[in-house]
């Protein structure tokens, strides 16, 4: 596999929740146009680390983040960086589908409206349609864009949330266990979608399912107790892990 441009460069990252040292000395390089999976047992810090990448931890008072997070060579925790702007560049999809109590159209148009991406209604319509197509949900909702987003099924809601996230044209898409609340069919749809998104974005996905990590990702990082144990090509990690802890986890002996 050829090496791609590095999108996110993380160096010696530490996160504290109050007194708890949640992330210890994590260094990881996330490539552009690649799906990177974070795996590990519950409470190992993978979600916490993911939330560092778009500064969502800022909204939690007790969290302190240290270390270097370089997005295209620029430190996102620098004083000059506006977290609000950053989050437009680094989109996020959450564990549970969380459509806003608005129409499907307004859900997708929310980000573009806030950031002024559309000059007029026609352009906004176009962005909404394009995003819904990218979210692989356009055909299901094109006739009822005015109905509430909360009325969709769980899988549709999650794809709507993905469409909502891509509508702001992010460069990186963070996904925090996007399929944990979905049934196998909806999961398959979302996974297919992730694979398509790889063409345009750098995708980082946190997952509990090792099969899912193996299916959708090219790179995999294994976290354990706040440490990054192993990081490398997905095939390599699953077939030939170097660290005994990784091996124990993927064979089901810990976690």
């Amino acid at each position: 596999m050829d090496t791609k441009e590095i999108k996110f460069e993380c160096r010696d990252c530490q996160v504290y929740y109050g007194d708890k040292h949640a992330i210890k000395d994590v260094s990881v390089d996330i490539e552009d146009k690649t799906v990177t999976a974070f795996i590990g047992p519950s409470g190992c810090g993978k979600s916490t680390f993911l939330r560092c990448l778009n500064r969502m931890n800022d909204t939690i008072d007790a969290a302190r983040v240290m270390g270097g997070f370089l997005l295209d060579g620029e430190d996102i925790y620098d004083r000059r960086v506006d977290p609000v702007q950053l989050r437009a560049k680094v989109g996020m999809v959450f564990q549970r589908p969380n459509p806003f109590p608005k129409s499907i159209y307004d859900n997708v148009a929310y980000g573009p409206k806030i950031h002024g991406l559309a000059k007029n209604k026609a352009e906004l319509d176009e962005i909404v349609e394009r995003s819904l197509r990218r979210g692989a949900i356009w055909d299901e909702v094109k006739d009822r864009l005015d109905s509430p987003g909360t009325g969709l099924s769980g899988g549709q809601q999650q794809r709507l949330c993905i469409a909502r996230a891509v509508a702001t044209e992010p460069e990186v898409l963070l996904m925090d266990e996007p399929c944990s609340a979905l049934d196998p069919i909806a999961t398959a749809q979302v996974e297919e979608l992730i694979d398509e998104l790889r063409a345009n974005y750098s995708v980082v996905i946190v997952t509990h399912s090792m099969q899912q990590a193996a299916r959708v990702s090219q790179k995999t990082a294994f976290f354990h107790l706040g440490n990054l144990v192993e990081f490398g090509e997905t095939g390599e990690i699953f077939t030939n892990p170097k660290d005994p802890r990784t091996e124990s986890y993927i064979t089901g002996r810990i976690g």
Binding site: M56, L86, G91, M92, V93, F100
Partner: peptide, 13 residues
């Protein structure tokens, strides 16, 4: 729900 706020912050609002 906090998830509503997270969703909005996550979009850069």
């Amino acid at each position: 729900p906090q998830s509503m706020r997270d969703g909005s912050f996550g979009l850069g609002a």
